[in-house]
Computed example of a mutant assay.
Amino acid sequence: MSLALSVLDLVPVRSDQTTGDALAATLDLARAADRLGYRRYWVAEHHNMPAVAATNPPVVIGLVASATERIRVGSGGVMLPNHAPLVVAEQFALLEAAFPGRIDLGIGRAPGSDPVTSWALRHGAGGVSDEAVTHFPEYVDNVLAMMEPAGVGLALRGGQHVLKATPAALSVPQIWLLGSSDYSARLAAEKGMPYVFAHHFSGSGTAEALELYRSTFQPSPELDAPRTFLTVNAVVAPTAEQAHRLALPQLLQMLALRTGQPLVAQRSVEDAETIVDAGLPEAHDSLVEAMRRRWVIGDPSTARADLERLAASYGVDEVMVNPVAGAFRGADPRTSSARERTLALLAS
């Protein structure tokens, strides 16, 4: 591929799927991405959502890496305030040891869930939500240091103690900062780390965040120049009409999320069409249309041209595609054929 392509996967759960079905479909999708030459496969962290099974990135990464041979596998991302830095370092050091040279650790600052679930994640482990966010830069440094083969020294009770994420590391994962505001752009530039803006989710502020990152970047021993790529939601089918139909279930999911409606498992294409045909409120209809314009939806040649245009516009040589195509009634619950087809048509 002249333009490197990667995959972002939230492990969506359709109304006809169990969690096990959704994971089986993700493993098939990952195998397809590996076979088609995609560069990396990242999974997200979201909690307590009826349509998302990606609650624990390290577990899913282990499954995906075991099911594939070549592709880099990582988190897009681990929401660090939800976890103790040592735990994250241990998890990803083990993954890197098992799959050397194939693991990415993408770190984010957002909660990845509603306030109640965030409280359960953080207070349940003895943490305090506000403190975890406030100390985010320090926690990032801790993760980086603990995964180094030499570990990091910890002064405690008058003595010096060494903390290592794993006893005998030969390599460390590639570590990225992720964000949907300028906060992580500034922090990544300051620390000399790779950075990705969540264009697929935010849709605005991408150019400003990337310019801030590039213009204020400070080289580090790990990275001598800014490194970033673009994320985008995509649905590709043999015809544009088919692609737009397949995009409807996820468009309604995002509409519910943005307007505070109850979240449900992802609907079938037919059920989504019934809702849209009945008529959406004018404000909701305009929001759906705005999202539709930001996504890449269409036939293969149009979609590929859109990706090339976006990459040129934002000055990147890699695009991470979130394949959000839905499914028709009666589809095999353990596969996501329309998502796989999106990847195949983009790569061909």
Rank of each mutant, 00 (worst) to 15 (best):
V143M: 02
V11Y: 07
V140P: 02
G326Q: 00
V316T: 12
Q91H: 11
V11W: 04
T239W: 10
L310Y: 00
W119T: 15
V78K: 03
G77C: 11
G151V: 07
F217D: 05
M1T: 14
Y314M: 05
W42E: 06
N322L: 15
L8K: 03
R109A: 07
E45H: 10
S6A: 14
G205H: 00
R14W: 03
S15K: 14
L121N: 01
E308M: 07
V319M: 15
A234L: 11
V235F: 03
A198L: 02
V269P: 02
R293F: 00
R122F: 04
T228E: 07
A51E: 06
S2M: 12
T68I: 15
R72N: 09
A33N: 11
S336W: 07
D224C: 12
S181N: 15
R341T: 13
E190K: 13
V60D: 08
V196F: 05
S113H: 02
A145L: 12
W42Q: 01
Q261T: 06
E90I: 03
A305N: 10
R334H: 13
R227C: 06
S215V: 07
H200K: 03
R341K: 08
W176M: 04
E211Q: 14
A278F: 03
L154D: 01
P85H: 08
G127V: 07
D28Y: 07
W176N: 05
T342P: 06
A311S: 06
G179D: 02
V52D: 08
L8F: 10
I175L: 03
Y314Q: 11
W42Y: 01
L310G: 10
D317K: 06
A150Q: 14
A283M: 01
G151F: 01
F328M: 03
P249W: 04
A150L: 11
L210E: 03
S215H: 10
A290E: 12
M79E: 08
T342N: 07
R186P: 06
A169R: 12
I71T: 10
M147I: 08
D317L: 09
L187W: 14
I275W: 04
D299F: 02
Y183K: 11
H199A: 04
V73R: 04
A247V: 13
R70V: 13
T166W: 14
R40D: 07
A65V: 05
